[in-house]
Design a protein around this nucleic acid. Structure first.
Ligand SMILES: [Mn+2]
Ligand SMILES: [Mn+2]
Ligand SMILES: [Zn+2]
Ligand SMILES: [Zn+2]
Lengths: 131, 131
DNA sequence: TCTAATTTAATAAACATTATCATATTAGAA
DNA sequence: TTCTAATATGATAATGTTTATTAAATTAGA
């Protein structure tokens, strides 16, 4: 609603629907996931539009693209620095926020300028362990 | 040659060519990269075969699949635990090996069993910084 | 209210990866 | 060495994801 006025993009029902679906969403959905969810309320929306919107939101820093899943991109509305547990059993992606400031010795990175750090912890979630 | 006898797979010229190309390779090539490189010496090889071989090598633990690049898988013959610098400018992927055993508090991972840790450092390489 | 700029939706195209299957090759047994 | 069952290859089709195209619709500001 009003809260998205100052983002610097035109407000369309499609964009609002995607923003509302993503708001606080911790499931790290794919474009297809978002499309299906939004389609329930706005059956006329197109998948291409969802891709367009995600691209726009990414540029505006309102969403982050995750490369965690080799078969498709996944999106995260939490753009703060945080890390992920990735279940090798079911593909679930879970946030972990732990105080983490790695000491990276200069010698190890040879003039590379580090802008962002992402930690991936691969393993098995509780549910998948019980099988 | 002889060194690949005990892997538990049939030795074919195609497999040997891929293994030789990957041996000590630090460029984190895609399937297409590998196909192009191997094709120089074995022009009859098919891209599907490269995919088959990579799948087999992955199962045998001789190669690791990286999800670093959103547009395509990349492969790493170094299956030891190590981490990567990823250049947001040119897409280059560089190894970093630093002693890194994060202390992950149990409370942060809620019953998740961590099998593998991968650290991604996004930024700009020396070359890209100079532009 | 009017209008220029932007966005949408439908669809085609591009691209990476996987599936299919007839033919060829490997590795081990005889 | 020869034979043969099991496996691998190569050509190609199929699939799934993402991007490009473009006419029509919508937004936001004058
Ligand atoms: Mn997250
Ligand atoms: Mn590596
Ligand atoms: Zn799981
Ligand atoms: Zn670079």
């Amino acid at each position: 609603m009003q809260k998205y006025r100052n983002i610097g993009i035109k407000l369309t029902p499609q964009r609002l629907a995607v923003l509302e679906f993503l708001e606080g969403n911790k499931s790290h959905p794919s474009a297809e996931d978002i499309y299906r969810a939004v389609k329930n309320r706005y059956p006329m929306i197109s998948l291409a539009t969802v891709y367009n919107i995600l691209e726009t939101l990414k540029e505006k820093g309102l969403v982050q693209e995750l490369n965690i899943d080799p078969s498709k991109k996944r999106f995260d509305p939490d753009t703060s620095s945080h890390h992920h547990l990735i279940c090798m059993g079911c593909g679930k992606v879970i946030d972990i926020s732990m105080d983490y400031s790695p000491h990276i010795p200069e010698t190890a990175i040879q003039g590379f300028e580090v802008k962002r750090v992402h930690l991936e912890l691969y393993g098995l979630c509780q549910d998948c362990r019980e099988k």
